[in-house]
Design a protein around this nucleic acid. Sequence first.
DNA 1: GCCGTTTTCGGCCCGACTGTTTTCAGTCG
Length: 603
Amino acid sequence: MYATMKVNSMMNNLQLAQLFRDIAAVYEIKGENRFRIIAYQRAADSIEHLTSEAKDYWDDGKINEIPGIGPTIASHLDELFRTGHAKHFEKTLAQVPSSIFPLLLVPGIGPKRAYSLVTELSLLKEKSVIDDLLQKAVLHKVAELPGFGEKSEEEIIKNIKTYQKGSIKEVRITLAEADEIANHLKEYLLKNKTVKRVDVLGSLRRRVATIGDIDLAIIADDTNQAIDHFCHYRNEKIIERGPTGASILLTNGRQVDMRVQDRASYGAMLQYFTGSKNHNIRLRTYALTKHKSLSEYGIKTIKGTKETIKKFATEEDFYHDLGMDWIPPELREDRGEIEAAMTHQIPNLVQKTNILGDFHIHTNYNLEPSHDLGTNSLEEILDTAEAMEYEYVGISDHNPSTGNHTEKQIIEILKKRKSYYEQHFYSWKKKNKKNIHIFIMLEIDILPNGKLAIPTKAFEYIDAAIISVHSSFQQTRGDMTNRIKSALICHPKIKILGHPTGRLLGKREGYEVDWPEIFDLCAKQNIAIEINAHPYRLDLPDALVQTAKKNKVLFAINTDSHDKESMNFMSYGVDVARRGWLTKDDIINTMQYNKLREWLMGK
DNA sequence: GCCGTTTTCGGCCCGACTGTTTTCAGTCG
């Protein structure tokens, strides 16, 4: 890896995280103090989850604000960003053959085994080390090594082959896809009479934007039979199986971990298996100060040499025993929720039923737009909104393309569109006798120069605007920040900043922006930030939602629907909002119509 | 190497599973 990825001053967070993991691996091989190893692993986790580049922290002189980065690592990073070199990192990595690093990506191979394999079998070519190891294993050279045997050899062959098929763990899926898989599994498991209850836990229960593995816990009358039933679900292979659970690999590359627990201890299991890892570590560390040790079986109290274990049927009781309020799964990321739970300051999170409308819907009305049209008519959208018990919807088509129209034509098109929507809305309303309201809005492109894609006069024909970036994603952080800032102050009818980071999960990273600057301006201008609920966007990301809230910004949860079915994605946006600690009062589309109209249009 | 709702020193989450071993090391979540 270090043949292609050199240590340098341009490293992004993912590369830095990888670097720290590799350093930790070297320390592990060298038998370093295990807490130093853990420190590097935690630094890696921390950097990976940052919402801004570590380099930007450094630029702002805030490198020591990154959790898990103390004086030592900070000084190495300082050297790295300043000079492009970090002698300590380079020296550490050079202590082992670089060919061990690719091997760490193969499941079941950790630092120690990678090191033995590489040195004992002289596998020194970094580029081909995985293929070379496979060859040696096939020739039964691995089983001869000390600490390895025939079974490990077979396991290595199997794991390399699975890995080469398409790095399983690298690809995460969207929440929507994971929901579908999990629901199918749940239905299957409940078909077995011995299975009494199934819960989807892990990142899926926490409603994380993308999902790696799927975690399930069950209550069953006959544990063995239940595990058996689970292992018969259509799978590629059974990864492991024990008396308390099993893991399988699905044919679509997803790993599913299932655990069985008694009713009496089920609360502890729900807590343990929901995670996150960082939440659990923080919770257990805190518990230790109270002489309590937490596990999936319950809470052990240590008094001298005497240990007693207390079981918990519900998660609420588990948290209460630790002297804190129950914590909603969406908050369990070690972002301050434990402290809040101890002082009874867990916010009353927004719920799907609080949502009274959706501002970002595209219809099939053809205004010769800059981007794609919707597929449904205004009437079909209204029918759907009505069925969802909304009070109002905002129709936000893309602006007419600037390349094909003069300013005059754009004004004409929008004028025509306004009267079209008004007429159609009133006849729909008359026919259906429903008390729903519409806002005739527009999603306007923020051009690369920070101007908007419609002339000022055209604003006369819309009630309010969403503005979004749809081009030139590669601008520098400074340029992008200025671009958005100047667009935000173009016109008083600008009320929402659409899909703010532009990310497409699994396809495109969001662009770099100085978020505090944007948030401050939005708060000042009373512009809401969109939480785009489309499962491929979930943009603004939850961690930034939490930051923005601290900057006193308001939010709009929108589906960006291009068809009526997508309007149901609203719940995914609510998931993001909850993960960002939002209450009903932080979100404009929880307001009732009159109040909302006042906010949106000032009348 | 990090960090503080008992600590600026002395701690650092907890357990399952597998394989190669006869009591444990490595890996994983």
